[in-house]
Design a protein around this nucleic acid. Structure first.
Lengths: 184, 184
DNA sequence: GTCTATATTGTGATAGAC
DNA sequence: GTCTATCACAATATAGAC
């Protein structure tokens, strides 16, 4: 592998890294290509050599986490996982992808792209259906939202408070809390 | 009251209404003054007659909900409310302010302004401390995050799924789930 | 692969007529 | 109170040299 090529790959990785940080911090629409280039110490044009547009850069950033959620939804459905297993898997996936969590589930300025890339609403529906069961009453649906909120937002906050990692103790407590949400 | 003045007040209210919708939908940074004016069917200049800047428009939109959270934090601390009362109050406040919830707790592009307007981090800390108790162990802190997640995100999702209102049944289920998060 | 320079459009905000 | 016209600048993106 040539030196230039290897450097190019490293640069691409650095761009993704810096873009993720800034997008998460200031939002997608709130971050300009110039901001990213400045933080990188390179020019805007260098950025456009690696990514054809700002939107494509975002797409590259979200590709893995998004397919992670879609795959998980498929797997949960196919294997008929019970609520506890679904919640455990959601907690782990949220912890793994916590660096893009804020971007993925918080930034309203990316929802148009999100809807074009993946059926996020569909994945969420799958999870809630698995948690609430078939034809749920209103109270049961509220409990499913509660459990889902713990697995997603609760896990994210716990990871944030724990320097970017989810300890075994915290994981156990979150899973127990999420499962308890579903009980009557 | 003169006709012009009354119309002006109505216009101001309409601006706030449309701005809230678009900010929530596309994010603050993702929404331009031109977007709002177009949706309103007026000119950008008319908007600037009522609000001196885009940031001030956002501030007017968030003023009430923000002081609502600060007041609640103060009240909970002063009255030494127990976890169940804190969670119930949080659920009600989240349901009341659900129209700006997404904006307030999701949009990364407003955090700079948010930090200048109010001590949001401080309010959150207050709530979590009230839920977790003094000097909490790690597991207890995780449970507090879980309960907080239910009261905020869980309530929001439930309100969204219920056409903008929180039914008594859903409220009861959410509160029970949130309280159960704290149990061992 | 990266640069400087530039084209082009969008954005927040203002001036001044009505 | 609202308009049209406009400013200054920031944004995405490209051209072409090295």
């Amino acid at each position: 592998m040539a030196v230039a090529e290897r450097d190019g790959i490293r640069t691409r990785a650095r761009i993704l890294e810096v873009a993720q940080e800034l997008f998460t911090e200031r939002g997608y629409a709130g971050t300009s290509i110039a901001d990213i280039a400045r933080e990188l110490g390179t020019s805007k044009a260098a950025l456009y050599y690696h990514f054809s547009s700002k939107e494509q850069l975002l797409g590259a950033l979200l590709a893995e986490p998004l397919s992670g959620y879609a795959d998980l939804a498929d797997r949960c459905r196919a294997e008929h996982l019970g609520p506890a297993d679904v919640l455990g898997a959601l907690i782990d996936l949220t912890a793994e992808t916590h660096t893009v969590f804020a971007l993925l589930s918080n930034d309203p300025s990316i929802t148009p792209l999100l809807q074009r890339l993946h059926d996020v609403e569909g994945s969420i529906q799958t999870f809630v259906e698995l948690l609430a069961g078939p034809n749920p009453a209103e109270a049961m649906r509220a409990k499913a939202w509660a459990a889902f909120a713990v697995a997603k937002q609760g896990t994210f906050w716990a990871v944030q408070a724990g320097d970017g990692t989810l300890s075994a103790v915290a994981r156990k407590a979150l899973l127990a809390a999420a499962v308890r949400c579903l009980k009557s």
